[in-house]
Structure formats: C-alpha cells, structure tokens
Design a protein around this nucleic acid. Structure first.
Lengths: 105, 105
DNA sequence: TGTCAATATCTAGGGCTGTCGATATAGTCG
DNA sequence: CGACTATATCGACAGCCCTAGATATTGACA
C-alpha cells in the first residue's frame, strides 16, 4: 500500500546504485557494496535495511556473509506505478479522445 | 542520468497524489490541487515546480489558469527503471540459471 | 571457549526539504 | 489604468535523513 515508501527507498543515489547492481549481478554480498558505492560499512548496512523494509530486496544469510537480491514483489509494485504513468501519458497523447475543456465557474 | 531526480519527485505523498490525479484526470488546473492535497497554494506551486523540473509533468497556460498533464518522457523513464527491476527479479527466479556461489577469499 | 570477520545498532552532526505567511508577478476584465 | 484572480517567489522554521565513528552482535573456526 505504501508506494511512497518504495519510491523513497529508490530515490537516493547510493540505494539506487545498490539496486542497479542487484539488477545486473543477480546476487551480491553485502560486503561488496562498500566498494561499489564509496560509503562506509554502517552506511551500507543502513541503506540495505531501508531497501529491505521497503520490500525491494531480500537477504539470505550464508555463513558469515549475507547475500542480497531483488524482491519480485517490490519490482512488481514499481512496475504497476510505471504502468499507471505510461497509461495516463499515452491516453493524453490521443487527440481524438480529448474532451474540450469546459468553462470554469 | 538523473533518474534519482525523477524518483525523488515521485517519493513524496503530495506529489504522488498530484501525479495520480493526472494519471486519472488527464488534465488538471493547478488551482484544483489545493483541494485534493490539503496543502496551501504556495506548497502546491512548489511541488508542481519540482515535478516540472523532474520532467514528469507539462504545464500549459490558458488565460489565468495553468493546466497540467503527464509528460510522456518522464513516464517512459520510470517505465524503463521498472523494467530493469522486473527483468532482474524474474531472472533471479529462474533456478536453472543459478550459478553456485563460489567460496570467497 | 576465545579470536576473528561480517554485519547491525547507537549516537551526533550537518544538510536537505516540506510547509506556510507574506509578497510579487502575470493575466483578465471593466 | 485599476481591481481582481491565479500562480510564483521569498523567508523562515521544523523535521527528516544521510553519514561515519564507536560499539555491539552474530557466526565460523580452531
């Protein structure tokens, strides 16, 4: 229900970089994000928590390491939002269905 | 490359409400957003500016009023981001393509 | 059990942002 | 031009959030 939360999670350079890495690398160890993003370990941990609580990523512990990957549910939510926008924009582009703007007041 | 800017613009309750209204109403006068969002006129003006500069909405002056509608380019950008996520998530769901995790160090 | 590595939590500070009142600008109509 | 309306800008304040150092927790391994 909280699409704002998902968008807020994505709307940050470091977190978007993390998500992009997961979109291309399939599975990434938490320890590797420190290099790719240029921030400290506590900061990475914080961002991963935000992404997790937003429902965008899933974590799985494997020994000492924790591996992250994209959450299909979060991706689906973003896709639905995108579809809402594209559908509205495409509809507006159709001149034939444009109703004349009625006088106000 | 400022996808972050687009996401930041969407990641705010009032602005997302504005965008949702535009997705369903096709064309909306700026003066109508004050009612639907429950914020003051300067705040609405501020949010519309953010959405405009992010490339999500287009404004068109018609006399005293200014009408807003969705920008197809912004919608396309969001759609591309969503596709990135869904593609990655769907790929991860395929067990057959999962490579075993190699030992680290 | 003790040590080491990976990750999480706590804390504080600095910057960004949403908000609104006051004011300015722009357009319409007499 | 002058009055009125819609919208934009300005100024200030409060709250949120990104960040990193210090510290705690967790798991592996000997």
């Amino acid at each position: 229900m909280d699409d704002v939360k998902i968008l807020q999670a994505l709307a940050e350079p470091t977190r978007l970089a993390i998500v992009r890495q997961l979109a291309s690398d399939k599975e990434v160890c938490a320890c590797d994000f420190t290099d790719c993003c240029g921030v400290s370990q506590p900061t990475v941990s914080h961002h991963l928590k935000v992404l997790r609580e937003a429902g965008l990523v899933i974590s799985e512990r494997r020994g000492t390491w924790i591996y992250y990957r994209l959450d299909p549910k979060g991706a689906a939510r973003v896709a639905r939002l995108a579809q809402l926008l594209t559908a509205g924009a495409e509809r507006d582009a159709k001149r034939s269905t444009m109703k004349p703007v009625l006088a106000r007041a």
